[in-house]
Amino acid sequence: MSPILQAIHVEKYFGAFRALNDVSLSVSRGEVVCIIGPSGSGKSTLLRCISQLESIDGGLIAVDDEISGFRLRGESLFCLNDVQIAKQRQRVGMVFQRFNLFPHRSALQNLMEGPVRVQKRPVEECRREALELLRRVGLAEKADAYPNELSGGQQQRVAIARALAMHPQILLFDEPTSALDPELVGEVLSVMKELAQSGMTMVVVTHEIAFCREVADRVVFMDGGAIIAAGSPNDMIVHPQNHRVANFISAVL
């Protein structure tokens, strides 16, 4: 079976700054890939390109063998329009560092917004499923709460449930625990661990080395906009071969 996500020779520039430098990465169905690396190394940019919040300047990204953001005709890549890109984005869920819940909607409404308004599924079905998802992240009793009445950890769990409500084929996490107080990190990580065990395909940008070691199938190290090394958690974290990886691991542990 072909990989669910393929990034091939991806290039991204912000003005003259080269944010992604020939990045290639493929992720199989059900695989959990953790991306680590120093800040400014292009980890988040890679995720934002995969979720099409940024457009790429070279290379190709494909989800489930469908090219993201472009249509290939002959030798040319034609840009898709906003409606087509929005449709493609439904396949890729995104969990943000700052949660980005809709503050004017209750937790339940946050989950139902996409399925009801975008996917046009029946309201009752969406409501049942949303409540089930809230139960899954341990927040069934908070369905009616507004984001400002929830702790950071609870907000992030709602955000994960919101992404799941769209039935994405792949879920991206952009430093999901970096904005949390230390005592709230655990509850979010345990939800993510449960997701990984249930067979969800996940790409996680994180600084939680212990989480990578325990949950990841593969760890990718990025620096300067490029992938420097990749391998099993054991090869990357416990016995890193590459000296830059080793330096980074010893600095954050």
């Binding site: 929005a86 995104m94 700052r98 809709f102 308004r117 992404a163």
Partner: peptide, 27 residues
């Protein structure tokens, strides 16, 4: 309105116009 709101709306498959009308403008 925080920029993250538009990104979150887009990440659940909303077009820019729909995100503007249902997420950004109400806030």
């Amino acid at each position: 309105v925080d920029r993250g709101q538009m990104e979150a709306a887009q990440s659940i498959g909303m077009t820019k116009i729909r995100a503007m009308l249902t997420i950004i403008l109400p806030q």
